Computed example of a mutant assay.
Amino acid sequence: MKIGVITFPGSLDDHDAKRAVRLAGGDPVDLWHGDADLKGVDAVVVPGGFSYGDYLRCGAIARFAPVMDELIPAAQGGMPVIGICNGFQILCESHLLPGALIRNDHQKFLCKDQVLRVENTSTAWTNAFTADQEITIALKNGEGCFVADDATLDRLEGEGQVVFRYLQGNPNGSYRDIAGVTNERGNVVGLMPHPEHCVEEGFGPSTDGLAFFTSAITALASV
Rank of each mutant, 00 (worst) to 15 (best):
A131R: 13
A131D: 12
A131Y: 04
D132Q: 13
Q133D: 14
Q133V: 12
I135L: 12
I135Y: 10
I137C: 04
I137F: 01
I137N: 01
A138V: 02
A138S: 15
K140D: 01
K140N: 12
K140Q: 09
N141F: 03
N141M: 05
N141Y: 04
G144S: 06
C145Q: 10
F146G: 00
V147W: 03
V147T: 15
A148Y: 07
A148L: 08
D149M: 12
D149I: 11
D150F: 05
D150K: 15
D150W: 05
A151L: 12
A151T: 14
T152Y: 02
L153T: 12
L153H: 11
D154C: 07
R155Q: 12
R155W: 10
R155H: 09
R155D: 11
R155Y: 06
L156S: 05
L156Q: 05
G158I: 10
G158M: 10
E159F: 07
E159A: 12
E159I: 08
G160P: 03
G160L: 01
G160Q: 03
Q161L: 10
Q161C: 07
V162W: 03
V162K: 08
V163S: 13
V163N: 13
F164M: 02
R165E: 09
R165V: 09
L167E: 06
L167F: 02
L167Q: 11
Q168I: 06
Q168V: 11
Q168N: 15
Q168C: 11
N170I: 04
P171T: 02
P171K: 02
P171C: 03
P171H: 01
P171M: 02
P171F: 00
N172Y: 00
N172D: 01
N172K: 00
N172H: 00
N172T: 00
G173Y: 02
S174R: 04
S174Q: 02
S174K: 02
Y175Q: 14
R176S: 08
R176I: 04
D177N: 15
D177L: 06
D177G: 09
I178Q: 03
I178Y: 01
I178R: 03
A179E: 09
G180R: 09
G180F: 05
G180D: 06
V181Q: 08
T182A: 15
E184W: 08
E184I: 10
R185I: 07
G186Q: 11
G186P: 11
G186V: 10
N187D: 12
V188F: 05
V188W: 04
V189K: 07
V189E: 02
V189F: 05
V189T: 13
G190K: 12
G190F: 10
L191K: 07
L191C: 15
L191D: 03
M192I: 03
P193D: 00
H197F: 06
H197S: 09
C198S: 08
V199W: 01
V199E: 01
E200R: 15
E201I: 06
G202Y: 05
F203C: 13
F203N: 14
F203K: 15
F203V: 13
G204R: 07
P205D: 09
P205R: 10
T207W: 00
T207Y: 00
T207R: 00
D208I: 07
D208Q: 12
L210N: 06
L210P: 06
A211W: 07
A211C: 11
F212T: 02
T214V: 06
